[in-house]
Design a protein around this nucleic acid. Structure first.
Lengths: 215, 215
DNA sequence: ATTTTCAGTGCACGGCTGTGCACTGAGCAC
DNA sequence: GTGCTCAGTGCACAGCCGTGCACTGAAAAT
């Protein structure tokens, strides 16, 4: 029972505000509850119970758990895009792109653990529609990264395809690192080790990329 | 109903053989059924129904779905280790390690699609024990690869840690490629594109690694 | 002031779930 | 041949599931 909207709880909320509040409560409950068993093992009744609402009230907000899942994908990728924005406008006191990027990544994973865990889980285990939605979003991130890379010194002569391939490689490494950070479960020592390893790996990849096409 | 052992089906099987047959049928059914919804959304009754056996008979073979999951992890990594063996003893007509390795990977993913899909799914979505079992097995693969890399020319001066980091990078890339191959769903065009991309990426990584520590 | 809207209620239904218990009967050791 | 073992049966139970339907009552629209 984490019921959020009660009659006259805050002075007086408009009806749509109260509805939105319940909707958010449902999303939050689903995100938390799906952490064990995943989205497809999540029941509408569990969610309703956790929100403090009768099961049938669920339908006022979502058609099904799958529908809810798609909304969660949107939410999660808002977090993720916020991270990408932070990477791009990273603290300029960090001269090294890799250092600052890895730092931003670890901070975001820690702050938005549930969203990242959701993506890692449902990417392969979720309902078909959810899986494809996630895949699509990741593809968009890849394209964005490829565009960023094109503005980097040393990639002027690269083909569109090679840029895409490199972007795919980097995104893969970042996803893998994010997953490892999740497994480290917030223990500082583990996180630091993962971050250090990731920095080394990204540097290796950078060296490889810089010597590409010139060899 | 895919019931495997029936009374006097094959001339006469010993009792333990018939039991083993049912066990294998249960594992196969679970592997197939868990492809939608995942292991934790899989019910003992579904499995029993699919095998053509009464629900309670399940307990003659496994304590729970989770227990079954651990057995499936073992099975899946038998497939995976077979692949690693094939990589090591790859067709020597392929001069390039990368070409032959990627070829072996694609062939194994195609032949053992369900096992690879199982690992990709349950790695993050499965019951806690299954997740840790998978993580442990992947770690073992990483260590094996690190040992292999140590025997490679050009890595003589590498530290134990750097070898481990490189192994982690490669395993991550391979996992990512395997997952992409699964998503390609057996369409040849998609698979070939993924394979080509993977070869390029591994080559980039190789170049990076060869220039490591010497820069 | 009256009417409409609609988020949330309460109840009911049939279907699926895991699991306990007593059983059967073929395969095997003796 | 006799008796034990034990994989698979059959039935029962209580609990959870999604969802249909008629409802209430406060907020919004008129």
């Amino acid at each position: 029972m984490i019921r959020v909207p009660t009659p006259d709880d805050p002075p007086t909320l408009t009806r749509v505000e109260r509805k939105e509040q319940t909707r958010q409560a449902i999303l939050a409950a689903a995100l938390a509850l799906s952490s064990e068993g995943g989205l497809s093992a999540l029941s509408l009744r569990q969610v309703a119970r956790h929100v403090g609402v009768v099961p049938t009230a669920f339908y006022r907000h979502f058609d099904s758990i799958e529908d809810l899942g798609l909304a969660l994908v949107d939410d999660a990728f808002v977090s993720l895009r916020a991270m990408l924005r932070d990477v791009r406008t990273a603290d300029p006191t960090f001269a090294d792109v890799i250092d600052s990027s890895v730092r931003v990544l670890t901070e975001h994973v820690r702050a938005q653990r549930e969203h990242f865990a959701f993506i890692a889980r449902e990417r392969f285990a979720g309902p078909a529609e959810v899986r494809t939605a996630i895949r699509h979003e990741i593809e968009l991130c890849e394209r964005e990264l490829a565009a960023d890379l094109a503005r980097f010194p040393g990639t002027e002569s690269w083909s569109r395809e090679d840029l895409q391939v490199l972007a795919n490689l980097i995104v893969g490494a970042v996803v893998s690192t994010a997953e490892d950070l999740l497994v480290a479960e917030g223990r500082r020592a583990g996180e630091d080790a993962v971050a250090a390893r990731s920095r080394t790996q990204l540097r290796m990849m950078l060296i490889g990329a810089l010597n590409w096409r010139s060899s």
